[in-house]
Design a protein around this nucleic acid. Structure first.
Length: 299
DNA sequence: TCTGCATGAAAAA
DNA sequence: TTTTCCTGCAGAG
């Protein structure tokens, strides 16, 4: 759970509980970038933002963006960036300070309008304007970067299906030569940025692909099919704030998708496959639990 | 109350 | 490949 916003519901100023089924992968971070900008306000003439680092150990230098103007927000894969112009910085692009956040496994960045709730628990960073607030907890990375340092982070990342200018042939040039299993390749952020353990399992199922098959045995046509599907699924994830990969025809109930119906194989070890009824398999691959159906993923 | 596990990734070995 | 780190929750007892 993380990167949620409560912009959609009524009473948005109230502290809210995140939906149980929010699983932060790349879509969460893109949604966060959008919500944070909309909530705090961003641009060259926007009001300044109050930044409070409540765990200085993880937030060295954050004081520099206290009273700074938020210019814009951005996401690449699972990395969140916010551009600030500090009070003492000259006009132009020089002196821009980038807040870089990576939520890791436990991080949450909760955004809300109106007055923020009383800070409690392990609050790491709070951003606040007259319009709203954003509270960060538990993130792996929370730091200020200059342009060069930000570029170094971006240089380590592969193409992000959620970015309009993403080129699927760039990851393909790695995959087509790789002996590494497809299920491991998809988790490598320098191949495709933003896929996490849920999208990995689900996209392989949707395309009938054997997670153990080496990348180089995949055809370009099937790779592009997979990529295009990823774009659709992840964009839907940004809109709804949750991951749903099952097709309506494969769900037992109509209406709002229940958590139990949202996935084909993720966390369904031992349960019957929605298509063939065979038990869903699980094994640790690339350090994470992989789920798949041996019968429906033969290729 | 205690334990283990979870959406991640860097460091250590 | 294994360990480590950050937090919150569910399930066991």
């Amino acid at each position: 759970m993380s990167g949620q916003s409560n912009l959609d519901g009524p009473g948005a100023a109230e502290p809210h509980r995140p939906p149980e089924d929010v699983l932060p992968e790349g879509h969460t971070i893109h949604r966060l970038a959008r919500d944070l900008k909309a909530t705090l306000g961003a641009g060259p003439n926007s009001e300044t933002v109050h930044a409070t680092a409540l765990q200085e150990r993880f937030s060295a230098g954050i004081a520099r963006i206290d009273g700074a103007r938020l210019l814009r927000t951005d996401a690449w894969g699972k990395h969140f960036f916010a551009a600030f112009r500090p009070k003492d910085a000259p006009a132009g692009t020089a002196g821009i300070a980038w807040l870089h956040v990576h939520l890791g496994l436990y991080g949450t960045f909760v955004v809300g309008r109106g007055e923020p709730p009383e800070p409690k628990g392990e609050l790491r960073l709070r951003l606040q304007s007259s319009r709203g607030w954003a509270d960060l907890r538990g993130a792996t990375a929370c730091e200020l970067l200059d342009d060069a340092e930000r570029n170094a982070v971006l240089a380590r990342l592969g193409q992000d299906p959620l970015r309009k200018d993403a080129d699927p042939l760039r990851p393909w040039s790695k995959i087509r030569r790789s002996k590494v299993a497809l299920g491991a390749l998809l988790m490598q952020q320098d191949v495709v940025a933003g896929i996490g353990n849920v999208y990995r399992a689900e996209i392989l199922f949707r395309h009938g692909l054997d997670p153990f098959r080496p990348g180089r045995e995949l055809s370009q046509e099937r790779w592009l099919d997979l990529w295009n599907d990823l774009v659709v699924l992840m964009r839907s994830g940004v809109r709804s704030g949750r991951i749903v990969t099952t097709r309506p025809a494969d769900r037992p109930r109509r209406g709002r998708v229940l958590r139990d119906d949202a996935f084909y194989v993720y966390r369904r070890a031992g349960l019957p496959c929605r298509i063939c009824g065979a038990p869903v398999q699980t094994v640790v691959m690339a350090g994470r639990n992989l789920y798949w159906c041996a019968k429906d993923q033969p290729d």
